[in-house]
Amino acid sequence: MYEIIAFYTFSALVIGLFGIVVLSKNALYSMTALAGGMVFISGFFFILDAEFLGVVQIVVYTGAIMALYAFGMMFFDTTRDVKEDIRCKKIFYTLSILSAVLVLIVLSAPIFSANIEAIYPTLEGVGNVQTIGLLLFTKYLVAFELAAIMLLVAMIAGIVLVGKKLDAQSDDLEVAKELK
């Protein structure tokens, strides 16, 4: 019974918060609601006894949305409403409703066909962390390594982009010092 109460509480919270994310015109409300919603999603993982994924959900999304806040701080006055500039409302609403329906169909298709079966049944006596480790380093090894390589590439690209600017700045500073 308590699981059901918890499930519906978390569902209401998550849907409400994500509703605010979409509907609010203030960037700070949206970002805060997004962070809150992401943290509450971890509640579902905890109800399903997948503590590891639940904690990872909290850890990953805290950091990710923190970066979003940094961008919000740089680009907006977050205490004011953002004026949305929608040129053609018809196209905007058709596209958004269409994509929402598409997502709904994709997610609910397995429920109606009613043939979901676990191909890999959970192992008895093996913890969450170990199971994920086993899967990552056997079945999904290639995908895992590819993701790692992509992240590495992105990291190096970021460092190179910033590094060039830093060199230019320090050169400018030295030139300025010499001129003095």
Binding site: E51, V55, I58, V59, T62, N128, V129
Partner: peptide
């Protein structure tokens, strides 16, 4: 059983 990660997160 993931207490440490939970507390730090």
């Amino acid at each position: 059983n993931v207490a440490l990660l939970y507390v730090m997160g």
